[in-house]
Design a protein around this nucleic acid. Structure first.
Length: 572
RNA sequence: UGGGGUGUGGUCCAACGGCAGGACACUUGACUCUGGAUCAAGUUAUUGGGGUUCGAAUCCCUGCACCCCAGCCA
């Protein structure tokens, strides 16, 4: 049937292949037009930006098509799963902005049902209890090019299978003594179809079912059943499960129960970062990072702490698209989405990261002026605030050069520059440390006629720099982050080295005694803003513990000046 | 050397027999009290070879490259 335009939602989004499939299903009136998806994490780790792609896809599709998306924990392996991961995942999905209503499920809630279905398969002669050990099963499975061989237990009478399976459940056997296997085809070219294991004995406490069970279902057996029970229409997963689809289909067909459609798409890869749970865990355990929510981590909790917004992540997920080809997305796109969101919303403030003191010699000694500053030029409703100005101020070390290169718009000896929202100043003298020769102070004069940053004569001042009044400055710690990896893709490197060898030891830089304008004194954890000309920053939760503000640099502003400087190219 | 997938600018995604388009990145210019933002312009692509067709990224044949599968993980 042709797709009828009026039945599918209007959208300016890309109609990727999954939307096409759904549109076709709706046109065919498959599932009476329902769209029910699910996000099925295993609670054995924290979520990362790759999961966010899947979350946005599944929940997003459900929203677009007026359906629903279930949050389902695929908790079928108690030896790896923990309650803390369940809690963390719930928090992260919610933070991303998605709501599953009452549709929070656990695979473990279906264990009894699954067990009954397993007995049915045994009764149909389609499953058997195998006493072979793991090594034997592996050996008899054959190889990619050679067929496997049938287990001697394969033709066990069904009564015996049933009895053994019941005793497996009853806890009569030790781990590994028996498994339940599907009886399919040991010569099948698809390895997954060579009598796959359905249940194994695992005498482990389960975070939810405790000691109720000592046999646990394998993914291939369990997943389709979970989808079927919940009435999932489109079961979306990643590419590596493509080979498993025939088995997914087989179980459902043999049981004759409702059969959702499995659809596979390519997982997200991001350059300059690592994405697998294993590698992320390695970073945490080796204390290369501060924990799962270290702001350098691509975990949802890490991104959140870094200052990423859910809006930016959702926008990113939409922009990268959905397809079947494996790809490597540029981290620059994520940062672009972030800047675009923050540009609209982040209040502007002034903060000096690496202070250089200026004394304005012709400014009255005890005078303080509160000058008006715009909070957000992109958002008039953000209003204005007053910032104190005095005889002594800090500017950024980078904003002064004794001998400026060509094209330098900032302050230099003898040149005039605008202090944002304040005055024009001219540098007259450089004070240096007698021993080291380092610049420690600048003596400048200001033009009283330029109050607010304009003069009546309308003369052009090319450079505008930010500043903070010395007596009013709030001391802060600022944490600067760069990529964890020094190469875009460790796996693509010629040398056979571990990703850990490509870790940048200097990806975290801590700046102390940074100087912020006084409005930031009591900014609460999570508060985000733009330090003008520097980037977007947010207050870290460590602020509370430290007793002074601690800011994370979320992302730098684009800097076309820095890009022109050859010395900086190496850093990029 | 079995099976399952995938090949479009630097990167990601479109185009589903009819002018290869968008986003990011990059370059240039304009504007600017953030070297930000904004605006304008521009560079760069269909895996090779054959075939069908008036016409092929798209259909057919045949190579090549890359990814996944031999857990009692998911």
């Amino acid at each position: 049937m042709k797709i009828e335009e009026n039945k599918v939602p209007k959208t300016d989004k890309v109609i990727h292949f999954i939307r096409q499939i759904i549109n076709q299903d709706i046109a065919d009136n498959k599932n009476e037009g329902r769209v029910i998806t699910r996000f099925p994490p295993e609670p054995n780790g924290f979520l990362h930006i790759g999961h966010a792609k899947s979350i946005c896809l599944n929940f997003g599709l459900a929203q677009e098509y007026g359906g629903r998306c279930h949050l389902r924990f695929d908790d079928t392996n108690p030896v790896k799963e923990e309650q803390k991961y369940i809690d963390g995942i719930i928090e992260d999905v919610r933070w991303l902005g998605f709501d599953w209503g009452e549709h929070l499920y656990y695979a473990s809630d279906y264990f009894e049902k699954m067990y009954k279905w397993a007995e049915i398969l045994i009764q149909k002669g389609l499953a058997f209890v195998d006493s072979a050990n793991a090594d034997q099963i592996r050996e008899w499975r054959g190889t990619l090019t050679q067929p496997g061989k049938e287990s001697p237990d394969r033709n066990r009478p069904f009564g015996e299978n049933l009895d053994l399976f019941r005793r497996m459940r009853a806890g009569e056997f030790e781990d590994g003594a028996y498994v339940l296997r599907a009886k399919i085809d040991m010569a099948h070219p698809n390895m997954n179809m060579r009598d796959p294991v359905m249940y194994r004995i695992l005498k482990a406490a389960h975070p939810r079912t405790g000691e109720d069970w000592c046999i646990y279902p394998m993914y291939d057996w369990a997943h389709g059943l979970e989808d079927s029970i919940e009435g999932i229409t489109h079961s979306i997963c990643t590419l590596e499960f493509e080979d498993h689809r025939p088995l997914y289909d087989w179980f459902l067909d043999q049981l004759g129960i409702y059969h959702p459609q499995q659809i596979e798409f390519a997982r997200l890869n991001l350059n300059y970062t690592v994405m697998s749970k294993r590698k992320l865990l390695q970073l945490v355990q080796n204390r290369i990072v501060d924990g799962w929510d270290d702001p350098r981590m691509p975990t949802i909790s890490g991104l959140r702490r870094r200052g990423y917004t859910p809006e930016a992540i959702r926008d990113f997920a939409e922009r990268i698209g959905v397809a079947k080809r494996e790809s490597m997305v540029d981290i620059g796109l994520l940062e672009h989405c972030l800047r675009e969101d923050l540009n609209k919303r982040a209040p502007r403030v002034m903060g000096v990261l690496k202070p250089l003191k200026i004394t304005i010699t012709n400014y009255p000694e005890d005078q303080v002026e509160w000058l008006e500053a715009v909070n957000n030029p992109e958002d008039e409703s953000a209003g204005v605030r007053k910032v104190p100005f005095s005889r002594e101020i800090y500017i950024e070390q980078d904003d002064f050069m004794e001998i400026p290169p060509k094209g330098y718009h900032r302050l230099s000896l003898g040149s005039e520059v605008r202090l944002r929202y304040a005055y024009y100043i001219t540098c007259n003298q450089v004070v240096k440390d007698k021993n080291t020769g380092e610049i420690c102070e600048l003596l400048c004069t200001f033009d009283p006629e330029s109050r607010g940053g304009y003069t009546a004569d309308g003369r052009k001042v090319k450079g505008t720099i930010h500043w903070v009044s010395v007596p009013h400055a709030v001391d802060a710690e600022i944490r600067l982050y760069s990529s964890l990896l020094i190469v875009a893709d460790p796996d693509a490197e010629k040398e056979e080295r571990e990703f850990i060898d490509y870790i940048d030891p200097d990806s975290l830089q801590i700046l102390n005694h940074c100087k912020l304008e006084p409005s930031l004194k009591d900014a609460p954890a999570g508060y985000f803003c733009q330090f003008e000309r520097k980037g977007y920053f947010c207050v870290d939760r460590d602020s509370v513990r430290c007793g002074y503000p601690v800011f994370n640099r979320t992302v730098e502003l684009r800097d076309s000046w820095a890009k022109m400087q050859p010395s900086n190219n190496a850093v990029l």
